[in-house]
Amino acid sequence: MKLLKSKGQHILLDRRYLYKIVRYADLNYNDVVLEVGCGLGNLTKLLLRSVKKVYGIEIDPRFCKLLREKFAEEIENGRFVLIEGDALKVDFPKFDKFVANIPYKISSPLTFKLLKQDFKLAVITYQKEFAERLIAREGSKRYGRLSIVAKAYCRAEILETIPPKAFKPKPKVESAIVRIIPEPEIFVENKDIFEDLVRFAFSRRRKKFGKILDEWCKEKGFKVNIPSEYKDKRPEEIPPEVYAEIADSVGEKG
C-alpha cells in the first residue's frame, strides 16, 4: 500500500516506541480507548491486547478495508469499533483514554477538539515542534495561542522524542510522545472570552499589549483594567494567568 506524505501518512513501525506509548498510557482492561489515525493497525493491535474496547477513527478507505480484515474478530465481538470518517468532523464516542499517532496536519484542530472532551488521559505522538509549542511558557520562541489556551484545560509534558527513522516513510522532522492530563494549569471562568482574547492578541502580535486590549475592548464592548507592567509588552511576553485574569474581569458591554 502506497503511503501518502501529502496526507500525513507516516506510519510508526518501530515496535519499541509502540510499546512505550502503550506503557505511558497506563492502560487497564476496564479502559475504553479512542485512537485517531489507525493506519495499518500497529498501535491498534497493542491497544486491543490491553483494554476493554477501542474506538478507531480512520479517514482513508484503503486503511479501513485493511483494518476490517485484520480485526474482523474484534469487530464482530464489539471490542473494536471502526469509524470511517474525518476525526475533525465526526462526533467522538465516549472514551476514557486517547492514545494515537495522529496525522500531524491536523494536530492543532484535533488537540483543541480533544481538550473539550471528558477523558482521563491522552498519550499522543506529535511533531516535536508542535509538542514544544503545546508546553511552552511566555518568552519562549514556541509560545503562542496553543500554549496559552491548552493551559486552561490540561497539563502536558513531553515524555521522549522519536527519530524519523522509526517511521515509514521517514518524516523530515523529529516526533515527540506527549502525555496530556486534563487538569488545568490556570483557572478560567469564561473560556469563550478567554480564547477570543488570546486569538485576538496573537493575530496582532507585533503590537503592544495595551494597544491590543484597547482594540479588543472597543470591538467587543468590554471594559478591562490591565496591569501597567504589561501595557508595553508583546502578546508572547504575557503569562497565561494574565490572559485568564483579564478575561474573567471584563465589565459589561456598552
Rank of each mutant, 00 (worst) to 15 (best):
E132N: 11
I75Q: 09
L121G: 00
I148N: 00
Y29T: 13
K120R: 14
K223P: 00
R205E: 12
N225Y: 14
E132D: 02
K218W: 03
L110V: 03
A150W: 07
P239V: 08
K120W: 06
Y24P: 02
N30E: 15
Y126T: 00
K128D: 10
Q127L: 00
R16W: 12
I106D: 04
P235S: 09
Q9E: 06
I177F: 04
I124A: 01
F209L: 09
V90P: 02
F222M: 00
V123W: 06
L43Q: 00
A131F: 00
F63N: 07
R234W: 04
G210F: 12
K105G: 14
A150Q: 04
Y230M: 04
I186H: 09
L66A: 12
L46S: 04
E189R: 15
L67W: 02
N77Q: 13
K97H: 06
I59Y: 11
E195L: 10
I186P: 14
V36N: 06
R49G: 09
L121I: 09
V123H: 06
L13V: 15
A152S: 15
K208P: 10
L18G: 11
P182H: 08
R234C: 08
A166G: 04
F119S: 02
K52V: 03
Y19W: 13
K113N: 04
F92G: 09
L197E: 04
N225V: 13
K105R: 15
P240E: 09
E236D: 15
V224S: 01
V198T: 04
T161H: 07
Y126A: 06
S228K: 15
R234K: 15
K231H: 12
I75T: 08
E35G: 07
T125Y: 05
V90N: 12
I193R: 12
A247I: 04
K113P: 10
A201N: 10
G78A: 05
V32W: 05
P227Q: 13
I75N: 12
L67R: 00
P171K: 10
E58A: 07
F80M: 10
E74N: 10
I212E: 02
Y153T: 06
F200H: 11
K120Y: 05
F222C: 09
Y17E: 03
Y143R: 01
P164N: 11
R234D: 00
L66S: 14
P163K: 08
A247D: 01
D31W: 01
I75E: 11
E241W: 06
K168C: 03
L213H: 03
E185C: 10
A247P: 08
F200P: 09
I59N: 11
K208D: 05
V198L: 06
E185L: 12
C154L: 11
K128V: 08
Q117P: 06
